[in-house]
């Protein structure tokens, strides 16, 4: 399923870029081609150069022995990796669910599977949320250097935002599913005499079966009072209709309640979305050189300050020299003329 999806994606991509109707095969090969073309892999050259240098230096064996052992990864990275993997898995599940939920056919519906997947994904999301909170704890508990701190912070934030987009997707899928279910129901109602209603009326008639039989028995028993009986029957039917109407009304009420409920949930969703939006606004516009401008400005300011200082120092120096010159002059005059 995923493969097929991807293929359609790539197809649309290639179409967007002006290449008419291509199979995914050529698209993939083209991408590879492109890779080969605009950059050059010189890893092998580097390694051979390194080997050459090593053997030339003669301490190759020693270096080989002290081959840098894979450093123990920190707890944080491990957890982050695990969460990332779980996220990817959940995404795959979600994609599957999307495929299932988007099916519009009446007969190829798999409610059980969908239910199960929905449940699993729900569990996954909750679990992931907990895990991310835990990760945050871990990141906070180790006071680290500045860069490590910001690195772990952005890892957490990006995981969170991924989770948020995923839950949003999940919500959308569920909405699609409900919409589809509604559609299916109306269609079924159209073509098959509103199954829910029929069961309902059957059910209601079961309640009154007794009375019905009774009245029928009554009509069979006494032929004389046909008139009365008819009236009675009429009245009874009216009563039944009334009950039916009442039931309809109750059903309507229930539907409305459900609607309101869903509306409230929707509103809750809107508010979370709003909160999310406010947070996201910050990052969208930044470019990587934005803070360097400040740095340049600071450096320039510092430079001008230093210049100022330099000037004041040089002017002081001149003053000193002048004073000394005058002093020496006087001294010489003193020595020559007075002594």
């Amino acid at each position: 399923m995923i493969a097929r999806r991807r293929r359609t994606n790539s197809g649309s991509d290639s179409k967007q870029n002006g290449i008419s109707s291509q199979t995914s095969q050529t698209f993939v090969s083209e991408v590879l081609l492109d890779t080969d073309m605009s950059c050059r892999d010189r890893t092998n050259e580097f390694f051979s150069a390194a080997k050459l240098l090593q053997s030339r230096q003669g301490n190759g064996a020693l270096a080989q022995k002290r081959n840098p052992a894979l450093r123990q990864r920190s707890e944080f990275t491990q957890i982050a990796k695990k969460i990332g993997r779980d996220l990817a898995n959940t995404f795959a599940k979600l994609e599957k669910l999307t495929m299932l939920a988007k099916k519009k056919s009446l007969f190829d519906d798999k409610p059980v599977e969908i239910q199960e997947l929905t449940y699993i994904i729900n569990q996954d999301i909750q679990g992931l949320n907990k895990q991310i909170a835990q990760l945050q704890q871990v990141a906070r508990s180790h006071p680290n250097a500045r860069h490590v701190q910001s690195h772990s912070n952005s890892v957490v934030v990006s995981l969170q935002s991924k989770l948020a987009t995923m839950s949003n997707d999940f919500k959308q899928v569920l909405e699609v599913r409900t919409e589809n279910l509604k559609h299916q129901k109306t269609r079924r109602d159209q073509f098959s005499e509103s199954p829910s209603n029929t069961t309902y009326s059957n059910h209601s008639s079961v309640l009154f079966q007794d009375e019905m039989n009774h009245s029928q028995g009554a009509t069979g028993g006494a032929d004389v009072v046909i008139n009365m009986d008819g009236l009675d029957k009429n009245r009874f039917q009216q009563q039944m209709q009334l009950v039916d109407q009442q039931d309809d009304y109750i059903q309507d009420r229930a539907d409305t309640m459900k609607n309101i409920e869903s509306t409230i949930v929707e509103l809750g969703g809107i508010f979370t979305q709003l909160a999310h939006m406010v947070k996201e606004q910050e990052e969208i516009v930044h470019r990587i050189d934005s803070n360097t401008d400040d740095a340049v400005m600071n450096v320039e300011a510092a430079h001008s300050e230093i210049l100022k200082y330099f000037q004041s120092v040089t002017s002081n120096r001149w003053l000193m020299i002048k004073i000394f010159a005058v002093l020496i002059l006087f001294f010489i005059i003193f020595v020559v003329f007075m002594a």
Partner: peptide, 15 residues
């Protein structure tokens, strides 16, 4: 080689 991390350099590319 001097800092003993040849194996840590995983790719070298001209872009």
């Amino acid at each position: 080689i001097h800092s003993n991390c040849v194996s840590q350099v995983s790719k070298v590319f001209d872009q």
